[in-house]
């Protein structure tokens, strides 16, 4: 459903990401792993329209979405949860969720599913998003993205700044999205965690893809073990 072809992306016309090819198929969970500053965020932001595509193309469901406005990409069915979350701090959990569905009316089945995935949010419908804990805000950011009933959910470091036990919960919730036909593309530094739920993965270092394969292949790869899994 998503195909990134020979993509160059970066800031101020300087490419941080070079000649990257990645692919996400229907209902698949795909991980992008790599260290801090490897270009994971730059790659995801350019796919979602927050950064310009300098060269190459981004094909989504057969058409190019490269350099289209963010709101159009969002309405086409790609929901992005940035590491900074970008919630509406002065608005309640409920209002944040309602806006997630924009421009459609919020779907009640989807809302029920979200409160099933994240019961904490159900308890805090009337609370202002800005007054919640980091973990709760992260749940809300994912929940808001899911309200759009996306075909593809893109997550940038969804475990940043949250407790390790919550990080495991977050990934358990993400794994269940497969049953709802939602494809997931996730960038993560916590490699063991993300490879435990992913189907496939790419290793991104210094702005280009170093390695790709199934999650099992990556787990067994000596280079991945040495660099990210702490195996000597």
């Amino acid at each position: 459903m998503l195909e990134v072809r020979a993509l160059d992306a970066g800031y101020n016309n300087k490419a941080v990401v070079n000649d990257v090819d990645i692919q996400v198929d229907d209902g698949e969970i795909v991980a992008i792993i790599g260290s801090n500053g490897a270009g994971k965020s730059t790659l995801l932001r350019s796919v979602c329209g927050l950064l310009p595509v300098l060269d190459g193309d981004v094909i989504y469901e057969g058409g190019s979405i490269a350099n289209r406005p963010v709101y159009q990409i969002s309405r086409a069915g790609i929901a992005f949860v940035p590491a900074e979350r970008h919630l509406f701090p002065g608005m309640t959990v409920d209002e944040n969720l309602t806006l997630g569905a924009y421009p459609k009316r919020p779907d009640s089945d989807r809302r029920a599913l979200i409160f099933e995935l994240f019961p904490r949010l159900g308890e805090r419908k009337r609370q202002a998003a800005g007054t919640m804990s980091g973990g709760e805000q992260q749940m809300l950011a994912v929940a808001r993205a899911l309200m759009a009933i996306p075909k593809l959910l893109i997550l940038d470091e969804p475990t940043t700044g949250i407790a390790p036990s919550l990080a495991v919960n977050t990934y358990q919730s993400i794994a269940t999205l497969r049953d709802h036909g939602i494809a997931v593309l996730v960038a993560e530094q916590q490699v063991p965690l993300v490879l435990s739920i992913a189907d496939r993965g790419y290793v991104l270092e210094n702005g280009s893809i170093q390695l790709e394969g199934s999650a099992a292949e990556l787990r067994d790869n000596p280079m991945v073990q040495k660099a990210y899994l702490g195996v000597a």
């Binding site: 979602c48 329209g49 927050l50 406005p69 963010v70 709101y71 969002s74 309405r75 929901a79 992005f80 940035p82 979350r85 970008h86 919630l87 509406f88 701090p89 002065g90 608005m91 209002e95 309602t98 806006l99 997630g100 924009y102 421009p103 009316r105 808001r144 993205a145 759009a148």
Partner: peptide, 21 residues
């Protein structure tokens, strides 16, 4: 919803764009 969309742009424009606004 239109009013909430307005407030969302004021509170976080990037967030609003990501929501399809």
């Amino acid at each position: 919803t239109a009013g909430k969309a307005v407030r969302s742009v004021i509170q976080d424009e990037v967030g609003a764009r990501l929501c399809g606004i």
